[in-house]
Design a protein around this nucleic acid. Sequence first.
DNA 1: ACCTGAACACCGTTCAAGT
DNA 2: ACCTGAACACCGTTCAAGT
Lengths: 232, 232
Amino acid sequence: MSSTSAQRPGSSAWWANRPPAPIARRRGRPPLDVDHIVTVALRLVDDVGVQTFSLRMLAEALESGTATLYRHFASKDELMVHVVDRVLGEVEVCELDGIATWQEAITSVAEALYATLRRHPHVLPLLVAQVPVGPNGLTHRERVLRLLLGHGFPVDLAARAFTAVGHYVIGFAVQQLGTASAGPDAPQLLAFYRGLDPVAYPATISAAEGLTTVPFEEEFRFGLALLVVGLN
Amino acid sequence: MSSTSAQRPGSSAWWANRPPAPIARRRGRPPLDVDHIVTVALRLVDDVGVQTFSLRMLAEALESGTATLYRHFASKDELMVHVVDRVLGEVEVCELDGIATWQEAITSVAEALYATLRRHPHVLPLLVAQVPVGPNGLTHRERVLRLLLGHGFPVDLAARAFTAVGHYVIGFAVQQLGTASAGPDAPQLLAFYRGLDPVAYPATISAAEGLTTVPFEEEFRFGLALLVVGLN
DNA sequence: ACCTGAACACCGTTCAAGT
DNA sequence: ACCTGAACACCGTTCAAGT
């Protein structure tokens, strides 16, 4: 019915429907399929992080070789697009129609997305560099836009609101949670701020605690509430 | 006076003041120093992107070898921290005291930061994964916090507001601009949305234009205004 | 016809050997 | 004492050779 070719735009990096699943003939071992590869890849990324994850590591976990992976994915980037969409598929979608106001509904969706991202902090660096156009990303986008349009938002305003809130959630999450493994932790950063030259950095020192020790969820909700209130 | 050791916290990845500049003896060639290395590194990252940039490429541009770079930086990550801080040093700081309201002042600072990030889209992926604690990052933070405290914000609220706005600017920029080189461009994405199944994705299709063709600056300002209005 | 070992052209990092 | 060529242990990707 709908133009299928438009769903597979030029670059295979967006969302490529690969050709028919290859005949698996791996003696004794479970057959490789895209779902299983993505499952294991996500688990590895969650465990060791994007930096350490490699196709060799993935191939070993699958008892296969790196060349075999290229029969299912055109590149590592394309595999990562699938991993991101798998994570987006974990967002718990509650029934939006049953929620009184659109403010509550959009807040609920944003917090559900945030909660999922918190469970996969190592995936966040992958999410910021792409517009998620996998099936789950599309579904999420459609649901939120439908909600806003259904409450009388003009299309332009709905699109802008979706972009603002969506970028806020993902951008905030990657900056707040993406540093979890790499950079300094909160106590170290607090000590760093407190040890600064009090003549040059009095404001930073006085605000040091608020900059470092606010619970993640509360810090996130503060800015989200500002956005939602502003949309009124 | 102030505790210098606290300004060089444990991990050298934050902001390491390297030992005295090494004696340069590179026959005929200009001496290597940190400033020059960072200048050339930034130019290369701007030109070819983070993915393509490599220490070998940098060493060649400096007419040196990769091993020599390690006499100035402990790792590639540490070099990148300097590159990020160099970019933050380009933010044009206007006189905040002369601005009527704190709303105008914080909007002005956020837009100055955004304008700088637009000139260095390839640096953005480096910025999201670290809390910027280089000299320029510290100065920026101090200026904004001082502004808010000076207008009577309680320290906790000032810290939360700084985090919300700062994360919004950087998070938005990386998602809006960081895909410039990699992913699909706006016309491609528009065509993709329009080609979706109209039964499954009616809201996305109707909002397709607003999701893809809003000018960057306007899209950014929309969400920023929501945040600032909400802070009232 | 399908799979994959082995190679290719890289990478960040290190250190023994040079000057 | 300072510098760096060359190596080390990787990486993503490819393809000719296997089954």
